[in-house]
Write a protein that binds this DNA or RNA. Structure first.
Length: 278
DNA sequence: AATCGTACCTGGCTGC
DNA sequence: TGCAGCCAGGTACGAT
């Protein structure tokens, strides 16, 4: 489901809902959601008594900064967090709730995921950089660690098509299938153009488009295409501003040519065949 | 080493 | 109505 703007919205919602709460117990209904070498009851025991001190985000990963450790959560395609005050707990948990965090005040946070792709992992301590470094995650696009010179260097070093390269989170984190199409449209670059064939001005336009689109989408609370909701149950608004994603057959807002949809490495890919250049 | 296909899952929609 | 087939905001892993 979510890309950087949606994950940021979920994180901000959780920041309002669960900060300062202490984990009393955790019920796990689909064990594969939890990535651990431990037996699940031992894993839960590590978390019991820890307090949520802060919420953070790295790329599309949500971080629960706990008293001692860090809980890392990736929503993948359909993960959601549902918060229930103690006096509004569901009689029966929803069908797709796979993990229930029960707090000492009786409130609960449920991890809900129709496709069960999401993952939750506990990292020792608070220094999470080795974990993300091992995954090869690139810089945060909305921070000053994202630099044009590095970005250009990364593009020049790959003959892959630009879209799959941007999706792999190594040059920059946070783009997924919606925003990569939007960014390439704004920068007027064909999704199949080899990264090392981008001109200097295209590279710069792409760099700037990434920052602009993601910042606007964060501002709008993300995009709700199918089922996305933040943890307060609110939909995003940026879907109204999408120029090409889901718009195949409609006229290009820039030149009027009919937008098309193709498949690039199994992902639906939307673009304008006349103003995005190979 | 880098890049690609496939697996992981369920449900909604389309078309026969 | 029923059902097969395709599609969906992502990543990990094995094959090439």
């Amino acid at each position: 489901m979510p890309e950087l703007p949606e994950v940021e919205a979920v994180k901000r919602g959780l920041n309002q809902l669960v900060l300062g709460k202490t984990i009393k117990d955790i019920q796990i209904y689909w064990p594969r959601i939890i990535t651990t070498d431990l037996a699940l009851d031992q894993w839960v025991a590590l978390l019991q008594g820890q307090r949520i001190e802060a919420m953070d985000r790295r790329g599309k990963y949500i971080l629960f900064i706990l008293s001692q450790d860090t809980l890392v959560s990736h929503l993948r395609m359909e993960g959601k967090y549902l918060f229930y005050p103690a006096n509004q707990l569901p009689i029966n948990k929803e069908k797709h709730t796979h993990v229930r965090f029960i707090f000492t005040d009786g409130n609960e946070l449920h991890y809900h995921d129709v496709r069960k792709f999401g993952r939750i992992q506990l990292l020792d301590g608070h220094d999470v950089s080795p974990y993300f470094q091992a995954k090869g995650l690139g810089p945060e696009p909305l921070s000053n660690e994202f630099q044009l010179a590095d970005f250009r260097w990364g593009l020049a070093g790959s003959s892959r098509s630009i879209k799959p390269l941007l999706l792999d989170q190594s040059l920059v984190v946070g783009l997924g299938n919606i925003y990569v199409d939007e960014v390439l449209f704004l920068a007027q670059i064909h999704p199949l153009k080899p990264a090392n064939q981008l001109t200097e001005s295209e590279s710069k336009a792409l760099f700037e488009a990434i920052g602009r689109i993601l910042a606007q989408a964060v501002e709008a609370g993300g995009s709700t295409i199918r089922t996305y909701r933040n943890s307060l149950g609110e939909a995003g608004k940026f879907q109204q501003d999408l120029k090409v994603y889901g718009q195949a057959g409609r006229p290009c807002p820039r030149c009027g040519t009919e937008l098309v949809k193709i498949r690039v490495q199994q992902r639906g890919t939307h673009y304008c065949p006349s103003c995005q250049h190979l």
